[in-house]
Design a protein around this nucleic acid. Structure first.
Length: 456
RNA sequence: GGAGAGAUGGCCGAGUGGUCGAAGGCGCUCCCCUGCUAAGGGAGUAUAGGCUCAAAAGGCUUAUCGAGGGUUCGAAUCCCUCUCUCUCCGCCA
């Protein structure tokens, strides 16, 4: 969420910056709502002040045993006026809030301007793609030929975009997650966390998935007893507006996390942490769930795009002055994993058009996939500045002792499934085996190669 | 799932309709006193808004006592709904 003060004082600049990322700010609507808000708020507060003053007067008079009927007559119609003003103000503020929650973050000055992902800028490359002396297979063929990857059965169990791994492949998957966690906790100073995989709407609003990207999420409705058949309940239900109770019902639902960024970042929601406790660096290995609505036909083969995938997430909550430095460091932490695994990759600075909703600046890390003969995203590292912190009311006590919004960053370190894909494809051999990167071998009980087991 | 008890500031805790953003204590900050230490005295110490001001300072003002709604001129206090926490019973990895 952007600072509404900024919209009031420097709207022109905000509109210009948002246009860079292809977002058209509803200027007229905002201005008229804002003007309305101002009038209504002033009037409401005046009425409230009057009510408070008169009530105080009544209290005074009563304590002295004086007659208050004269004063009471004075407030006769104040109540209605006030109620009306309050209701209209609330409506206007809700409308403003609605607009505010839909506005993406402003791009940082260092972000390349662009119209599509084609305008992303390569920052650096690491490693050299291996030259194969045979025709490479993709991870699906490799995994299936090993007898360790089974999409038809996964489809039987759940449907499209799920996968089933067994044996050495399942273990390799687990080894990867362990290896990543160990590296980040032991070498990069992150604290490991175990987090809920189901979160409430408030948390998702905090990190920016709600309200705008609801259709990307898996929603778990809370079972509620229908109280309509209980006459006692039904009666009390009528006292509430139906719109309100509907709203509450929605808000009560839980959602499967699309990324551990949500639970990790929301740890500081509604908190004011001590300045000395920054930076807070957290990592967690979790499954992630995405409905992938709107990606029909994209990456339908294999485990690149799944409804459920594992990821080791990195989150940092930092002092505002340190956030861009932290973004470089965090990206480096994710890169380190690929380096240790000896997987070639490149780092892309996303252009204004390709960045996520909450980010001011994002680096994507793309790993080399021989079968696709291209680099594919395996991590996305973003600085959100105060955008999420403002939604979450996540603050720290600054040097002057005043609460100030902190900056939040997140990045994958890394997507486990895609890393597995990269290993299968980059380390395949001519016999259909896959050698296991050195750093993973201790996690595999010393195993150095996946091979097809002889059928008995 | 059943029965009960709760939710107040950084923490503890008082407050059952009026001047309460909230007593008292602890903690913290500053000042005073005291060779040092210990003890003592004083002052301060929530957050988010709005209006005003060129800005800062300041001034005026609103909201917030788990959340939402209601009653009332007036709600931390009364009523309703929900959420969460704790205790006991049952069930369970």
């Amino acid at each position: 969420m952007l600072d509404i003060q900024l919209l009031r004082t420097d709207l022109e600049n905000v509109v210009r910056l948002l246009a860079k990322r292809g977002y058209t700010f509803p200027v007229t609507e905002f201005n008229s709502l804002e003007a309305e808000r101002k009038t209504l708020q002033t009037r409401t507060q005046e009425l409230q002040a009057r009510r408070n003053a008169i009530s105080r007067q009544i209290g005074n008079a009563k304590s002295k045993g004086e007659d208050v009927t004269a004063i009471l007559a004075e407030v006769d119609n104040l109540g209605d006026d006030l109620r009306q003003a309050e209701a209209r103000l609330e409506q206007t503020q809700a409308a403003l809030q609605h607009i505010l929650l839909q506005i993406p973050n402003l791009p940082h000055t260092s972000v390349p301007e662009g119209a599509s992902e084609a305008d992303n800028r390569e920052v650096r490359r690491w490693g050299t793609p291996r030259a194969f002396e045979f025709e490479v297979s993709d991870h699906v063929s490799i995994g299936e030929n090993l007898g360790l990857l089974d999409f038809p059965t996964a489809t039987k169990l759940s449907g499209a975009r799920f996968s089933l791994m067994t044996g050495g492949l399942a273990r390799l998957h687990r080894a990867l997650a362990q290896f990543m966690l160990d590296t980040h906790t032991r070498e990069h100073g992150y604290t490991e966390a175990y987090v809920p995989y189901l979160v409430n709407a408030e948390s998702l609003r905090g990190t920016g998935q709600l309200p705008k990207f609801k259709e990307d999420l898996f929603e778990i409705p809370r079972r509620r007893v229908n109280s309509a058949d209980s006459p006692l309940q039904a009666e009390s239900d009528q006292s509430q507006s139906s719109g309100n109770s509907q709203h509450r019902l929605d808000d009560d639902n839980l959602y499967l996390i699309p990324t551990a960024e949500v639970p990790l970042s929301n740890i500081v929601r509604d908190k004011i942490v001590a300045c000395e406790s920054l930076p807070i660096k957290l990592t967690a290995h979790t499954p992630c769930f995405r409905s992938e609505a709107g990606s029909y036909g994209k990456d339908t083969r294999g485990m690149i795009r799944q409804h459920q995938f594992d990821k080791v997430e990195l989150v940092q909550l930092v002092h505002p002055q340190a956030s861009y430095e932290a973004l470089e460091a965090l990206t480096g932490h994710a890169e380190k994993i690929l380096q240790k695994l000896e997987l070639p990759y490149r780092v892309m600075a996303l252009c204004t058009a390709d960045m996520g909703f909450a980010a001011t600046k994002t680096y994507d890390i793309e790993v080399w996939l021989p079968a696709q003969n291209t680099y594919r995203e395996i991590s996305s590292c973003s600085n959100c500045e105060a955008f999420q912190a403002r939604r979450m009311q996540a603050r720290f006590r600054n040097e002057k002792g005043k609460p100030e919004l902190l900056h939040s960053l997140n990045g994958s370190g890394l997507a486990v499934g895609r890393t597995l894909v990269a290993i299968l494809e980059n380390f395949q051999d001519i016999e259909g085996g896959v050698s296991i990167p050195k750093v993973l071998q201790p996690y595999m009980g010393g195993l150095d190669r996946l091979v097809r087991r002889m059928e008995k």
